[in-house]
Write a protein that binds this DNA or RNA. Structure first.
Lengths: 349, 349
DNA sequence: TTTTAGCACTCTCGGTTCGAGAGTGCTAAA
DNA sequence: TTTAGCACTCTCGAACCGAGAGTGCTAAAA
C-alpha cells in the first residue's frame, strides 16, 4: 500500500467526509472553500490526480469532482478513523438508555438495534447472544389437549425454546411434572455431551423426552446466531443510492432474507475477535448484493460461552467516523451485560 | 351507494384487476382487447364515464386511461371479492407448511408472516397471540452475580417475560428456589386480580417478588399485542408507488416504527371480530401516512383468552382478490393453533 | 522545487421544443 | 342502445442546446 503524505491523507479524508454528507462528487474549488484550506485549488487538483493515480479516488466522468473508491474508503477506515473513540457525550447517552432498561432483559436487543440505527443513521442488526455449547437449565412439560404436550426448555444464558410433542398415548399432568422434575435434577447445568453420556433412562417416557431435549439442544448449537433484531431500514431506503439503483435495493433484500443474513454473519463471525470491528466495504468482491453498500460488524459476548454479533448496514458512503466507534462501544457494552448474566449462572454449579 | 349494473361491475372489476397488475391507467381499447369483451370500446367508454361520474374511477389527466378511486376499490372489495374463497390448492400448500412446523411453536409466527408475504406479494405483519388477562403459570428465579437476580415468568398461553432485579442484599440460590417453589404453588393458573387478592406474604423477599410479578403481569395486560413479526417489506419497496412518491415511502416508516404500528393495530383491533377481515383503503382519511396504501387485517385467537392480529400491507392497488381470502384463511388457521394450546392449559386447573 | 494563476477543453444537467401516440368525448348512423 | 368515426387534448420521450462545473496543462511566481 503506497504511503501517503500528510496532506494527501487530509485531502482524502475531507473528500470522504464531504461525499458522505452530500453524496455529490467533490471538486477542488468546493473543497478549498468549504474547509478553508491554506493551499489553492490547483494544488488540491495535483494531489487529487495523485490519489486518483494510486486508486483511492475516481471520477464518475471527465470533469466531475472526485469520489472515493473502495480502496479509498478502506484507507480512510484503517488509517484515519479506525481507532477513533466515541465522544463522551454519546457514551453517556447510550449508557443512560441501557441503565433505564437494565431490568428488562427482553428490551436489550431491540434497544441496542434502535440505538445503533439512530446513531449511525443507517440500518442496524443485532443478534441475541447465542451459546455455541448449550447448557441445560430447566425443563417444563405442559399437557395441552389429548396427547399434545408443550415442552419449554430454558438454557443457561436465558435462551428459551418451545415445541409441541405428540405422545403415543395421553399422559397426565402429574406424570409430566414428575418427569420434568427428575430430568431437571439430573441435567441441570450439563452440556449436550454430558447429557448424552448419562446412563439410559429406564422409564420410556423419560427416555423419549430426553432424546427430544438433546435434539433441541444440538439443533441450537448448530445455528450460528440467536434471534436477529433489525432496525432503521428506512434510514437507508431514503439514501439516493437506494432510490436509483436497483442493485442497491437488492441489498435490502439480503437484509430481510434471514438465511442470507445468517450466511453473511457466519462467514464474518468466523474470523472475528470479540470487540474487534470488521468493516466490509462494497462487499469486498465476495458479496454481489453488497456492491454499493458497506457493513460494519463486531462480535460481542464471552467466547466459549455466549456470543452474538451486532452491526450497521448502509451505503458505502456511510459515516464510518460515527459508525465504527459506536459499533465498538456497543459491542463492549453488550459484552458486559452478557457476562453479568453468564458468570453468575456459571458460579451456580 | 349507487347501484351498479352487471356490466358496470364487470368493467370496474376488470379495471381494478388490470391496474393492479400493470400499475398503468387502463384505457377502453386495451380493456376490450385484453379481456375479449363482447362490446366495443365506445360502449366501455360510456360506462367508464358513468363510473367516473359516480366516483369509482378517475383520470390522472384528460386523455389518460382510468384508475380506480378509493371508493372504487372499496366497492370492488365489498361487492366483488370479499366473500371469495381461497383456492383449495393454496389451502393445501399453506396447511402443509404449518403441518411441517407443527412441533416448533417458535416458528409459527415467522412462518405465518412469511407465507402471508409470499402469497400476497406484499408486506405482512403478524402479532404473537397475547392474553388480555394474564394467568400465572410458572416462575423461576436465578441468582446471577451478587445481588442480581434473573426472573423468568411464564404465563398461561406461553408468553415468557424476563427481567433482572437487584436485591437489597445477596440471597443464595437455594433460598431463591424455595421462594419460587412456594409462589408457584400459590399462584398457578391465577389471574392478576386473584393474585392481588391473596393475603400478604409474611416473608419480605416473597412479598417483594410477588409485587414484581404482579407489576410484570399487569404491564403485559396493558400492551395491545405480543411481539410483532414482519416480512416481505422488500416486496413492497420495488412497487412504483414506493419508488416515486416520498409520501408512500413514509408509509414504510410507519411499519418499522413499532409504536405507530401498535397504535394502528389497537384502533383496528377494537372494532374487529375474530375472523372478520378488515380492509383499510388509503388510510380511510384517518392515517395520513397510508394515503397511497392499503392494509388488510384480521384478528385471530380466542377472545377473552388470547388473540393476535395478522395482515398485509401494500400499495392501494394490491391484489385484494388474493390477499383477502389468504388473510382470512390464515386467521382461521392460527385461531385453531392457539385454541389447541390454550384449551389444554385451561382444563388443567 | 513547489505552488498557483490562467485558460482551453470536456462533459453533465436542466430547460425547451416538438411530434407521435394514446385516450377521450361527442355526433350520427346502425 | 350500441358502435364507428373523428376531432381534440395531453403526456411522454427524443433531440437539442447552452450554462456551468470541473479538469489538466502550462507557465509564471514563490
Amino acid at each position: 500500500m503506497p504511503e501517503l503524505t500528510e496532506r494527501q491523507r487530509l485531502i482524502l479524508a475531507l473528500i470522504v467526509r464531504d461525499y458522505t454528507e452530500t453524496a455529490q462528487p467533490v471538486g477542488s474549488a468546493r473543497l478549498a472553500e468549504r474547509y478553508r484550506l491554506d493551499f489553492s485549488p490547483a494544488t488540491i487538483r495535483n494531489e487529487m490526480a495523485a490519489l486518483t493515480e494510486m486508486g483511492y479516488l475516481r471520477q464518475p466522468h471527465t470533469s466531475a469532482g472526485r469520489v472515493p473508491t473502495e480502496e479509498g474508503y478502506r484507507y480512510f477506515v484503517t488509517h484515519v478513523v479506525y481507532h477513533a473513540d466515541l465522544p463522551d457525550s454519546a457514551r453517556h447517552t447510550i449508557s443512560h438508555q441501557f441503565y433505564q432498561a437494565r431490568q428488562d432483559v427482553e428490551q436489550w436487543m431491540p434497544l441496542a438495534a434502535s440505538i445503533l440505527a439512530r446513531q449511525s443513521r443507517a440500518a442496524s442488526l443485532v443478534t441475541a447472544p447465542h451459546a455455541e455449547r448449550a447448557r441445560y437449565k430447566h425443563l417444563e412439560l405442559i399437557s395441552t389437549q389429548g396427547r399434545q404436550v408443550l415442552m419449554v426448555l430454558v438454557l443457561v444464558g436465558g435462551e428459551v425454546s418451545q415445541q409441541i410433542l405428540t405422545l403415543a398415548e395421553p399422559v397426565s399432568q402429574e406424570r409430566l411434572s414428575a418427569v420434568a422434575l427428575r430430568l431437571n435434577q439430573l441435567c441441570v447445568s450439563k452440556t449436550t455431551e454430558e447429557i448424552a453420556a448419562l446412563p439410559t433412562r429406564s422409564d420410556a417416557l423419560e427416555k423419549d423426552i430426553l432424546t427430544l431435549v438433546l435434539q433441541d439442544m444440538s439443533r441450537g448449537e448448530q445455528r450460528v446466531s440467536g434471534e436477529i433484531y433489525l432496525d432503521g431500514l428506512t434510514n437507508v431506503l431514503s439514501e439516493p443510492e437506494f432510490l436509483e439503483s436497483d442493485e442497491a435495493r437488492r441489498a435490502v433484500r439480503l437484509f430481510e432474507e434471514r438465511s442470507l443474513l445468517q450466511d453473511l454473519l457466519a462467514r464474518t463471525m468466523s474470523n472475528a475477535d470479540v470487540g474487534g470491528v470488521q468493516v466490509l466495504i462494497g462487499g469486498e468482491g465476495k458479496w454481489e448484493e453488497l456492491k454499493q453498500c458497506s457493513v460494519v460488524l463486531a462480535r460481542y459476548g464471552i467466547p466459549g460461552h455466549a456470543t452474538g454479533m451486532l452491526g450497521v448496514f448502509g451505503p458505502m458512503r456511510m459515516s464510518y467516523t460515527r459508525t465504527i466507534p459506536t459499533v465498538r462501544f456497543m459491542a463492549d457494552l453488550l459484552s458486559g451485560l452478557v457476562s453479568e448474566i453468564i458468570e453468575g449462572e456459571e458460579n451456580e454449579q
